[in-house]
Design a protein around this nucleic acid. Structure first.
Lengths: 214, 214
DNA sequence: GTCTATAGGTGGATAGAC
DNA sequence: GTCTATCCACCTATAGAC
């Protein structure tokens, strides 16, 4: 009987789990080490022991999750038959990953709002030069192949794909009101549906202008 | 010589100006009444006197700005010759208003993140049923006229137009990195340029599919 | 590694003088 | 209307027992 406890039996991980959830939901200044300790069912003093304090815990939490994203996040985007297919897969994979790591969107967005992402500049750069760059390259490839119209800046196009996805994840309740008129938040399925729409919308926008005779 | 002081000589307004800026930049929990008082060059105790406390000041600040948006925000969108033209004007007018009221994007977005917009439900509803609804109607009108493809949900299309604009305003430094690769934030002109792209992108996406023979 | 106790500081609000 | 002084609650971090 080696391990009586469930999967994350390491105290540090339990703390990070609780911290991540609270930081994402209330922000760094909006929650206290006591609340984090209580949520983790752990003595609040352990935040100092393991991470050197509240801010160290924050950094550790955000880095852990962002590294997971950089590592496994967008890997199933690679083997697409066409640029169009790759864009569809990107939107799908992005939403899928965020639904599996539901704290990340708010956690990351708050970091951008509160500190211009200074606590995680490396990781944000890794994302910018990783998945986002990959998306730009997909657009460029489509343009080179003649499948996408050439007069659209690839970075702008990529941001036109990414930003709606970020918006619905981060402002989920408001997006729900805007999309459905109802007060209920968006279901996971509605989110996936919107991701599919976003890909379709972008592909239609990128479709080459067909001349009558061509 | 009735008034030696500049335009907003009323103390309450001066307080709201400072509060708005600080709440937008650091969030409700990220700044103190003392900081607000110092920024307004006013005694911090006056926040309680005028607004009943920190939270009352917050509500007053957010309401004041949102009402300005509801009132004057999108008024120059009305007289457009075509739905396409109306969409272009919407994107332009939205960015123009936000550049004139630079605290509003972050202020509003933080309210959504922190409290699901519960402190300003009425105002958010007013925006949802005002400018956003107007944008949906424009898409619908274009579809009725046969100028836009009919198989796109108007609300989704509207959100595909609105969310990139929100994103670049709220995450300006990161959007700058993604769009230019450089560390500098986006200039106002770059912001307006992206708004034009957003309108173009949406219009291309909404263009009816041309059949060879039609 | 985990706990208790506490130090040291700062938060928002208010009573009461002016 | 504005200011000073102050109260109390609560926060983070740490010293030291276990």
């Amino acid at each position: 009987m080696p391990r009586p406890l469930p999967s994350p039996d390491r105290t540090a991980d339990v703390i990070l789990d609780a911290a991540e959830a609270l930081f994402a939901e209330r922000g760094f200044d909006g929650c206290t080490v006591k609340q984090i300790g209580a949520a983790a069912r752990v003595n609040p003093a352990l935040l100092s022991y393991y991470f050197g304090g509240k801010e160290g815990t924050y950094r550790a939490a955000i880095r852990r999750r962002l590294q997971a994203f950089a590592a496994e996040g967008m890997q199933d985007m690679g083997d697409a038959a066409s640029p169009g297919e790759a864009i569809r897969r990107f939107a799908e994979a992005y939403i899928r990953f965020m639904l599996r790591h539901p704290t990340l969107p708010k956690l990351l967005f708050r970091e951008v709002l509160d500190h211009d992402a200074e606590h995680a500049v490396e990781e944000v750069r890794a994302i910018a030069s990783g998945p986002f760059q990959a998306l730009c390259d997909v657009v460029r490839a489509g343009q080179a192949r003649g499948e996408f119209r050439p007069d659209v800046d690839p970075a702008r196009a990529a941001l036109s794909i990414l930003s709606p996805l970020v918006y619905v994840l981060v402002a989920r309740p408001v997006a729900g009101i805007l999309l459905t008129g109802r007060r209920r938040g968006l279901t996971d399925d509605a989110l996936r549906g919107f991701a599919a729409h976003t890909a379709d919308f972008a592909l239609a926008a990128l479709a080459p202008v067909r001349r009558p005779g061509a």
